[in-house]
Design a binder for these strands. Structure first.
Length: 290
DNA sequence: AGACACCTGTAT
DNA sequence: ATACAGGTGTCT
């Protein structure tokens, strides 16, 4: 479900309630979603901050412990500020797998982890181990807004992949952290680049277009509180509105909003991909920038 | 680089 | 009944 803008918006929606709150109890209804249960225990500790790295959300506690959440496709973190005690079990139909009981300023409230497909994972790890490891979130590429995430960097990474299509290249979290199926399609459309173009052919000018449109689109999407195409909501159960500004994602077969050409669907790296055959020609022919 | 696995809900 | 879904990890 969530890509960088959705995870960032979720982070912002949870910050006011969680920062400074103490975790009184953690109830696990479905242990499979926890990566390393036991050993490290956040109960009794204060949440000092919530950070984001790519699509990972990190709740940082006062004992060097980090609870790292990846929502994958259908994960949700939902605040229940008007409830304070978890029922002994949740109905299966609600897909609640973890319940958090918090307390702050004398008020108790709940945070629920809900995940229909149960692809999401929650990992408890010490901050020290988090910084040291080179797997999972330790193996991510730069953040899209980091200085190092520039055209030179993209070109240097791209030449390593002789025939990989641009679509797959930008989806690779080791190249850039946080892009997913929606935003890669939108970025390539705005940059007028065909998603099937081999990444290795990327020119500096094209890479600069990718970087500038990526940052522009991600900022717009965060400002719109994310894209709710199917079921994304923030911690207050509120939907985003960026779906109203999409040019290509989910619009295969419909007319291009720029030129009217019927948008094409393609299967690239197992992911459905929508692009405009006119605005994003496959030949690599030079187009004027939008 | 691609197929499959992990799950459940929804649309055709 | 079948295909598909804001993702990623693990096999060929």
């Amino acid at each position: 479900m969530p890509e960088l803008p959705e995870v960032e918006n979720l982070r912002l929606s949870l910050l006011p309630a969680l920062v400074g709150a103490r975790l009184n109890r953690l109830v696990v209804y479905h242990p499979d979603v926890l990566i390393n249960p036991g050993e490290l225990d956040p109960v009794g500790h204060i949440c000092l901050d919530i950070q984001r790295r790519g699509k990972y959300l990190r709740l940082c506690f006062d004992n060097d412990l980090v609870m790292e959440v990846h929502l994958r496709m259908t994960g949700h973190l939902l605040l229940r500020l008007d409830e304070s005690i978890l029922p002994p079990s949740y109905p299966h139909s609600e897909h609640i797998h973890v319940g958090y009981e918090w307390e702050k300023d004398g008020r108790a409230f709940l945070l629920l982890y809900q995940d229909t497909r149960r692809f999401g994972r929650i990992e408890l790890i010490s901050h020290t181990d988090l910084d040291a490891r080179s797997t999972g979130s330790g193996n991510l590429g730069p953040e899209p807004f980091a200085d190092e995430c520039n055209a030179d960097y993209l070109c240097r990474r791209a030449v390593r992949h002789s025939r990989m299509p641009l679509k797959s290249f930008l989806l690779d979290q080791n190249v850039i952290a946080g892009l997913g199926n929606i935003y890669v399609d939108e970025i390539l459309f705005a940059a007028r680049l065909n998603p099937l173009r081999p990444a290795a052919e990327l020119t500096v000018d094209e890479a600069e277009r990718i970087v500038s449109h990526m940052r522009r689109i991600l900022k717009l999407a965060i400002a719109a509180k994310g894209t709710t195409f199917r079921d994304y909501v923030d911690g207050h159960n509120l939907k985003g509105s960026f779906q109203e500004q999409l040019f290509v994602y989910g619009r295969g077969g419909e007319p291009c909003r720029i030129c009217g050409t019927t948008l094409a669907n393609a299967r690239i790296g197992g992911r459905n991909t929508v692009y405009c055959p006119t605005c994003q020609p496959g030949t690599g022919a030079v187009q004027e920038s939008p």
